[in-house]
């Protein structure tokens, strides 16, 4: 579990673990799995809110629950930078982790694959594999996206690759 900051680690341990090992093609097992995913997400969201650390909104984009869309944001220098968030549940899930995409930032940073899929740290994959099937979407967000945002947003803002929407508007207006 090394490689993450203590905050992340403590948060991660508080997210309830999942039990069912099932992919989107497993029918009822997947439904069961999905329920557990929701429970974990609810707990994670409540935890964030109570800690005044709410940073995303997601919802299932299809009834099967294999595609998720939403938003995520990061506060830097008292400014809130908000980005679209989307991802699919892979067929081999939960052995394979979902690939999180931030389409707005596609091409703006090197830590990203084509299509806006974020590059995760070297530690992520082994940890996920070790914890299969106990880790779910909430865990992926907590371990993957939150550290990435904390690391990349300040760089992107400082380098001027992204601009706050107010600034953008003002700059465009002007």
């Amino acid at each position: 579990m090394e490689g993450w900051d203590p905050n992340t680690k403590s948060t991660l341990t508080q997210i309830p673990l999942l039990t069912t090992k099932a992919g989107p093609r497993d029918g009822a097992a997947w439904t069961q799995r999905l329920k557990e995913e929701y429970k974990a997400l609810i707990a994670y969201t409540q935890m964030n809110k109570s800690n005044d650390n709410d940073w995303f909104r997601i919802s299932a984009a299809n009834p099967e629950g294999t595609r998720w869309t939403g938003k995520c944001w990061y506060v830097y220098n008292l400014l809130k930078y908000e980005f679209d968030l989307q991802f699919d549940i892979p067929v081999t899930y939960p052995s394979t982790a979902p690939e999180l995409e931030l389409p707005q930032l596609d091409g703006k940073t090197q830590k990203m694959y084509r299509g806006g899929k974020i590059c995760l740290t070297v530690h992520f994959k082994p940890l996920w594999a070790k914890n299969c099937p106990r880790f779910g979407i909430a865990h992926a967000l907590c371990l993957g996206l939150a550290p990435w945002l904390a690391a990349e947003v300040p760089i992107l803002v400082d380098s001027g690759m992204i601009k706050h929407k107010d600034d953008a508007t003002t700059s465009t207006e002007s």
Binding site: K35, Y38, K39, I42, T45, Q46, R57, S59
Partner: peptide, 17 residues
């Protein structure tokens, strides 16, 4: 599942302290 979806929705809507 629907109930959970609603709950998740609600949790996300709730005002954060």
């Amino acid at each position: 599942l629907l109930e959970l979806q609603r709950q998740f929705e609600f949790a996300q809507q709730a005002k954060s302290s």
